[in-house]
Design a protein around this nucleic acid. Structure first.
Lengths: 467, 467
DNA sequence: TTATTTGTAGGTTGACATTTG
DNA sequence: GCAAATGTCAACCTACAAATA
């Protein structure tokens, strides 16, 4: 029988005792899910401590442990030892950021200045005329030698050549690579360390694969190595997902020293590193020339290099470089999930790289980005910047602390026909002392549209006293 | 302390007591994995009963339960209540069937008569000349309306039109679709019913996703509905993977009555059905015109229709039809794992369907298949057949019971420069009273090569008294 | 600093279902 | 048809680790 007086310590959640049936944990999980879904338990709410809820329901407290654990696996809640269990910031909302279907000014999606696509016309015609139909077979599932050579050529041009002990696989895009790695080199239940703000589609894909993420604190220079070390000592961490250059959504860039420290820690704790270099071509703009992580720790790094921002998003081609020792696992996994990337698309990428078309595209994309950044700087002169932010595809706009949730802010913006994403959408941790908007500079159709969108955004933020 | 005399009841596995450390279950799992990997525990071996092993190790028997459960999740073993725990037939060997890299006659891989690819030359040039570069954007991630219409047109031509309550998604191939579904509509630990012999890449992908498969007994007409019903009553089954036409590897075709029974059972037990129709165009050859499962149970069926065998394997395009109610889940999942299928490839498929090129390709592929089947019938006149096997891409060759394992037979064939797969590779159950080879008729480069390969195969089988 | 609160993990208990002889 | 063997599952117990006041 319960002993305490529950009126004196009200619980944040009173599951309906009468609706409970056996097995208890399933029934309770169902109730919890329903409460979060119907909004009676809001994101951020602290759930009752396991022992108190158990006492109230007259069950053993580890039965509640089980319920909380399963709901954490579903991404509904998260627990911190010593502190409590909380409803997740994202709750049950899908995190996925997709192209916008509605009629609105899009400051949300990060596209890639597809106005440059016309530069591919010749390449397309060339590939089509050279008997491309003969390429359309099951042959060379990891890519042809010529395709892998083109990728090595591209990286050498960037100043970061691949090493002989790294294999290359041509994948069907960056997301396809990330999804493959989460599926193949990690198992459900594994723990991967990530930045406290990280690519939301990675969070979503990790969830799909039952892989748990753990946030590593950042400062202005990005992931703090000491924090990574601390978390590794405390937990059995299996991997590290990191975007060393232009982290999405913070835009931060790791300097050479941090990369070395992080590689050292990863080596010591045997973390499998996913290095996501979606804006690889901007490396050339960084005068410090920090090494890529794959150069520091090739035997543990899976380097994902998408061509979406280098050539064109619509081709769906990326390259994955991985340790030779992982060959069979990665290649079989790729065959199971995708079979191969169409050689038609791969051949276009290869051709664009080898002919120099890719370089032209890159230059033109950088021009666009620079123009869009100067518009942004004009509207938000106080926004954080560094010497490398003049050509990136999105910017960060810090918000003053407010009680408004990220979801509410996004909703209010939508009602003004603006789409823009709040930092909460990119967060795996609860303890976010930072709060900002990620403003995409690459999804609007024109400079005028961008300017109009940014002005509307500034108006809104001013009205609500968020800046 | 152990009480029994262990010499009288030898265990099939004696884990090294000294190497054990805490946590026990992890340590034991590691030992078990190692024993299976190094071959000291062979596929089919019955592991010690949980209570006996626990007694020997002086631990609680549910600690062993935990070890066996985890190893089952890894696909290393499987347990049957009342019977025992056994090492899986496939063990740790990769099941993946890939294109063959070596110089050998390939009777293993199922390709698609890519000699017909020349028929696509015009289509390719047409798409490339019509400003295809403008297609290369992030737009229309599920496919353009015109692409979905082309798929509906194709199915209508087959005589199995889609229903309005079914959404369509253009995916990057059949495997991409299956992998997506296993990732998105199922969760790790879920149970899916499959034929006792089923597509080996599906088995491998299920393993990658932590989804468990349970075998349903077959007779010559395919899956036995009563068996499905029995298994559903005994277990909490979440889904059903089925290839109603030309099951891979048995070649069996479900008749109309069975399809209805199966749909009925699936409805009653709320199974999510994956209907894999990789040889969809052969439907037209079946005079009985049985309905597709998606027509019988559209609200629960995910219909996977690959274009690899219809147009060309190298295009990497398939269509997925799914219940509208699952829209958000499927579409977001697709965006997370693949983003989109390149509109370049999709446009080629659309064009091939709308222009009639696809029909020409189909006719030519059927011609090839018929020729290859007649060669097979000539070499193996006693092989099982039915009125619909004259145009399929592979055949089944039953073997006499022998003590040789499937793996050994495959190895011996390889040493004779022949690649061919044994039924064990396609089996999820242990209790395989059937034993056969799946002989591909679609991977050799010429009729002469096929004939030579089949003769060598017959020679080998005769020598070893396997037929 | 230390005690308290809170979550996590490993292992145990007991009930139960299926298979087999 | 029943008893023994065997695997599975839910719930409980105990020890411990982190956060906080």
């Amino acid at each position: 029988m319960p002993i305490n007086d529950f009126n004196s310590h009200p619980l944040s959640w009173y599951p309906n005792k009468e609706r409970l049936n056996r097995p208890l944990y399933k029934s309770l999980l169902h109730e919890l899910k329903a409460a979060i879904e119907d909004g009676s338990l809001l994101p951020g709410t602290m759930l009752p401590p396991q022992r108190e809820l158990a006492d109230y329901l007259d069950v053993n407290f580890t039965t509640i442990t089980r319920v909380y654990k399963l709901s954490a696996q579903l991404g509904l809640t998260y627990g911190i030892t010593g502190k409590g269990t909380y409803v997740s910031p994202s709750g049950i909302d899908p995190l996925t950021i997709n192209t916008s279907p509605q009629h609105l000014i899009d400051l949300g999606f990060i596209a890639s200045y597809e106005q440059t696509n016309y530069l591919l016309d010749k390449t397309l015609r060339k590939v089509a005329s050279l008997g491309a139909s003969q390429l359309l077979t099951y042959a060379s599932p990891t890519g042809r030698d010529i395709d892998k050579a083109a990728f090595r050529q591209y990286l050498t041009w960037l100043g970061h050549p691949l090493l002989p002990e790294q294999n290359v696989l041509v994948t069907a895009g960056g997301e396809n690579s990330l999804s493959l790695l989460l599926n193949v080199i990690f198992s459900p239940g594994d723990l991967i360390a990530v930045d406290e703000f990280t690519y939301s589609n990675f969070i979503a894909t990790a969830k799909l694969n039952g892989v748990r993420l753990i946030a590593i604190k950042n400062d202005e220079q990005g992931m703090i190595p000491a924090e990574l070390e601390r978390i590794c000592k405390l937990n059995n961490i299996n991997g590290l997902y990191i975007i060393p250059e232009y982290n999405n959504p913070t835009g931060r860039i790791l300097d050479s020293h941090r990369r070395q420290e992080i590689a050292q820690i990863a080596k010591h704790h045997q973390l499998k590193i996913i290095e996501d270099d979606y804006l690889s071509f901007l490396s050339k703009a960084n005068p410090a020339r920090p090494p890529k992580i794959f150069q520091l720790l090739p035997q543990q790094t899976f380097y994902v290099c998408s061509m979406s921002k280098v050539i064109t998003s619509g081709l769906r081609v990326a390259y994955l470089a991985y340790p030779k020792s992982m060959g069979r696992q990665v290649e079989n996994g790729f065959f199971n999930t995708t079979v191969k990337t169409s050689t038609l698309n791969t051949a276009i990428a290869t051709n664009a790289i080898q002919s120099g078309v890719a370089k032209k595209i890159i230059q033109e994309k950088i021009n666009y980005a620079q123009k869009m950044n100067s518009i942004f700087n004009h509207v938000f002169p106080f926004a954080p910047t560094n010497e490398l932010t003049n050509n990136v595809f999105f910017r960060r706009l810090p918000l003053k602390n407010s009680r408004k949730s990220g979801k509410d802010i996004e909703k209010e913006l939508l009602s003004r026909h603006l789409r823009c994403f709040h930092s909460q959408r990119f967060s795996v941790a609860a303890t976010t002392n930072e709060s900002f908007l990620r403003v995409s500079l690459s999804a609007t159709n024109s400079r005028d549209e961008l300017l109009a969108g940014l002005k509307k955004l500034r108006e809104y933020l001013g009205e609500k006293k968020l800046i």
